[in-house]
Amino acid sequence: MRRPTAALTTTTLALAAMAVTACSAAAPSREGLPAGAETTALTGKLHATAKEAFVRPNGKPVRLNGPNLQPIWDANSSGTWNQATYNAIKAKGFTGVRMVLFWDDFEPRKGAWNEKAFTTLSTALARAKSAGLYVVLDCVHLYGKPEGQSRVPAWARKADGMGAVAANGLRFLQQLASRYGKNPALAAYDPVNEPYRWPVNHKSVLADYTKIVNAIRAKDAKTTIVLEPTYGDAKVPVSAFASFKPAKRTNLVWSIHDYYVGNAGAGYDRNGIGTSPNASDGKTGYRPADKANLAKHLNVQLAMARSVKLPVWIGEFGIGARAAGHDQFIKDKVALYKSKGIGYSWWEYHDGSGAFSMINANGTWKPWATWVR
């Protein structure tokens, strides 16, 4: 589902984030870090099973939850969140972060890699690992125009964002896999955020995912790979998976972005797209009387995923700070996810407009962040 572009990376976000980081550096979270948390050893790669999205080598599942977070503020700067930020996320009780990346930061010209961006990402991964947090890399965050390609390099654009990644983005995904695949903190690659395709064509999206998965697997045979439906929570028929034919069909996760507020039954239109307006616009509110419909919406995805033997993880959910029913929305969504035994990631830790931010301007947590946990 499309969020307002104001909620994504801008110069304003970079400046605001720098201010928050400076504050955090001077006065880290007031909540004490659990003993040993800063040196938590993330040993061995997580993997996925048909029922569990993230599992330790000893077979015990990890409920991966935490915020979405943008580690690169400026492609030509090393500015990023400091260690205290990741320690505070861990201290709050979260287990991971989903790092939002923009392709044009890394490959502004075809085959020309911006090493500054990779160095900053390496720093972010190291800090997350030091804090004991797992990381999901949101590798190509599609949004905006044309057709999701606002941050797709101009040289790489195609008819839509998913097509651009499948045709021109495989080298970038392989760069990430080659550089970070062995890092035990890397829980998964989420190669394409909300793949655009209109008119809706789930078979062609999954055929493109075949190319993407095979490309990553050529460089990294183990790390879990996340698959998403068109526009974040589209209803995908099981039959569409006939076009998904990767060489290895292991360590895969189905992930949706769940901004549905329960205002329309199961919440899908005649094209199978999640109904809007929804909470992704930062304004649409929630009525607790619609609580039962939240489960109906999610159950559509869970039933499909079971049929194709994929576990489910919620890559994004959220609601605007001033939207009606804000607090109860969070409580009801989190209770639903926990009742289903699935992890989730809030959109987002800090954003330029402040509509979804979990933290105040001075770096302290907003009171409701505890409910996200």
Rank of each mutant, 00 (worst) to 15 (best):
T10I: 02
T10R: 07
L15V: 11
T21M: 10
T21C: 06
A22S: 14
G32D: 15
G32T: 10
P34C: 02
P34S: 06
A35G: 13
T43M: 06
T43H: 11
G44Y: 10
H47L: 03
H47G: 14
F54N: 00
P57L: 14
N68E: 13
P71A: 14
W73G: 14
N76I: 12
G79L: 15
G79H: 14
Q83G: 13
A84R: 13
T85L: 09
N87K: 08
N87Q: 11
K90E: 06
T95N: 10
W103A: 09
D105T: 04
A112K: 13
F118S: 14
T120K: 01
L121S: 00
L125A: 10
L133N: 01
L137F: 11
C139Q: 11
H141L: 10
K158R: 10
G161V: 05
N168Q: 04
L173M: 07
L176R: 00
S178I: 03
Y180A: 02
G181M: 13
N183T: 13
L186M: 10
L186K: 12
A188W: 05
P191S: 10
N193I: 04
Y196V: 13
D208Y: 07
Y209F: 07
T210H: 09
I212A: 04
V213P: 04
A218N: 10
A218D: 12
V226N: 00
E228F: 12
G232D: 07
A240G: 07
A240D: 07
A242F: 04
A247Q: 08
K248P: 00
N251L: 02
S255F: 12
S255V: 09
H257V: 07
G262Q: 04
A266V: 08
G272I: 01
S276I: 13
P277A: 04
N278R: 08
D281C: 02
K283A: 11
Y286L: 06
K291C: 10
A295K: 11
V300G: 03
A303K: 15
A305G: 06
A305W: 06
V308Y: 06
G318N: 02
A321L: 09
D327A: 15
D327E: 14
I330K: 01
K331V: 10
V334P: 02
K338L: 13
Y344G: 02
Y344N: 06
W346N: 14
W347N: 02
G352S: 15
G354V: 05
G354C: 01
A355C: 01
F356W: 05
S357A: 00
N360F: 01
A361G: 03
T364H: 12
W365R: 12
T370I: 06
T370A: 15
